[in-house]
Nucleic acid binder design. Structure first.
Lengths: 300, 300
DNA sequence: CGCTGCCACAACCGCGGGTTATGCCGGGTG
DNA sequence: CACCCGGCATAACCCGCGGTTGTGGCAGCG
């Protein structure tokens, strides 16, 4: 099985036609046609049945599909890795973080950094944790910031600081004097709650704690990011459980917040590759992030 | 990145030399040399440093290593799948089972089958559960038998029958009249026990149950298969928890056995691909397996 | 000191994979 | 129905990649 055949097979499946595939691969249509035939009689079975002059994947082709696409994917990743290796550290600071942290924490840290080191180039990404690990491994970026312990064995993880899960609510929900007191989980019973479907460790823990509340909170809307939950709460849709960074964003104009009484901590992690030691700019950046985060977490 | 380069890179890493790699790929040494240089100046960095006329992988090469080997692996699997697709069902009955079941159950069933269908060709494999799923998916084989629920979404699984976890002991360990009474888990406290490190669902469940016994069983030997545990028990090394098939093998000459009092069942599963319906021979075979297994499990 | 094992370079060659040009077929459209 | 167009296959041609053999340099070793 030549690589060309694999690429071609994939291209035909995605574009749906031979000419489309040929365009995708930057070759002429007859070249694609001939290659496909080569592939087929090398395999010993038809990949596509020619019906009415069009191509239609056969049963066998569908069996190969998933596996072939995995290989294509892996090859793309290999390519990314090699290009990133061949052009090393063009940029002194390449950071990726989750959407939550991209809201205020990371921009603030970046702004502070550029006061200390004016004119430093930087690249910022926002990615969810799984993709983040991939980006780091593939050297698309050098530092990852996340609230989830990814448990990725090929990455070094450093806990920058810890905080509490926060409950946010529309203004006037609680008397002002209660805002500093932690809210017990049981107090959520029967309350309108924005559901979090974030599939990280924190999300799962929250789910399992909430499952024990009786009567269960009334949840009609489910969201996939903490930021969406915040926006809904600000519009009076109910309460939500969020990380302290989301709780703090927007200066709390449109919401009230108070800590949730829970032994579960929210931890801010920095991730980086163990083989590439951090340069001074990166270290300074992490120090700034930690400092800002501690500031946010101390004042709840 | 040409596929040839990937294969070459892998071959050099495994053989340690260019000439070795060339032999592995059935090409001449100069061809390999030239290809490697092509690869390197296409990548933009050296894969191997030439020291004293020998090749030594560079730092960058080591970064690529894992990923490249994954791709090679995937390509091999794709090749297996395609050859299995192009030569369909040469053999009417291709079965894979775990070592435990290969001891007596599967051979017995096969013998019975060949009485009903004399001269039927068959292929037998023994594999652990993960590899088993791969073999089925790659169409190396058609039916898998295992005691573990693999939860593999691309495979159909059928529970053939259920049984109890058994405790086996050297002869004379228990009075004969107790042998039919289930042994409570607590009775294992302080007893000499052969540890099972099988990493399947059953093994994990047993581990967690045993962890609650106080004082814990005295375990000095850990084994990786139930069969090894049986052999050690037969030599007087202590007790062991095993599946009922292992407990029954060898006609129980050298051991005593009795059920373990546990709500946990041992389930015998048949696995097959949902897209390929079973032929009569295969169905008959599964019926025989079920029948024999029920016989074994009924008489504990 | 020569032998051996390993790698690089040179010169050569065949074929795989590309090109353009063309024809066939079926479906949609005025 | 006539027409065109989109899509695939075939033919003829061509180039360079990936292979070959032959040779030379270099280290290590008996």
């Amino acid at each position: 099985m030549r690589l060309r055949y694999i690429e071609l097979f994939h291209a035909v499946l995605t574009t749906g036609s031979l000419t489309g595939a040929a365009k995708l691969l930057n070759i002429s249509q007859p070249a694609a046609s001939k290659a496909l035939q080569h592939a087929e009689d090398q395999l010993g079975f038809e990949l596509f049945s020619r019906v009415h002059g069009r191509l239609q994947p056969t049963q066998q082709a569908l069996l190969l599909r998933d596996r072939v696409e995995r290989i294509i994917q892996e090859l793309h990743e290999l390519k990314r890795l090699t290009t990133n290796i061949s052009q090393p550290e063009s940029c002194p600071l390449r950071v990726t973080c989750t959407p939550t942290l991209a809201q205020t924490l990371v921009p603030d840290a970046m702004a502070s950094l550029r006061k200390a080191f004016p004119g430093t180039a930087a690249e910022l990404f926002t990615q969810h944790s799984l993709v983040m690990c991939e980006s780091l491994a593939l050297r698309d970026t050098d530092i990852g910031l996340t609230l989830q312990d990814p448990g990725h064995q090929n990455l070094r993880q450093q806990a920058l600081c810890r905080g509490q899960v926060m409950v946010i609510a529309p203004p006037g929900w609680w008397p002002d004097e209660e805002l500093t007191q932690p809210l017990p989980v049981s107090a959520l019973a029967g309350q309108p709650l924005i559901g979090i479907t974030v599939r990280d460790a924190l999300g799962n823990m929250l789910q399992s704690h909430l499952a024990q509340v009786d009567p269960p909170p009334r949840t009609s809307v489910w969201v996939q990011t903490y930021q969406l939950a915040y926006s809904l709460v600000a519009r009076g849709e109910g309460l939500a459980l969020v990380d302290p960074f989301t709780a703090r964003c927007g200066n709390g104009q449109n919401i009230q917040r108070r800590p949730l009484k829970l032994h579960l901590d929210v931890v801010l992690y920095a991730l980086y590759r163990p083989d590439s030691p951090l340069n001074p700019v990166q270290k300074r950046f992490l120090a700034l992030v930690r400092q800002l985060a501690q500031g946010i977490l101390a004042d709840n």
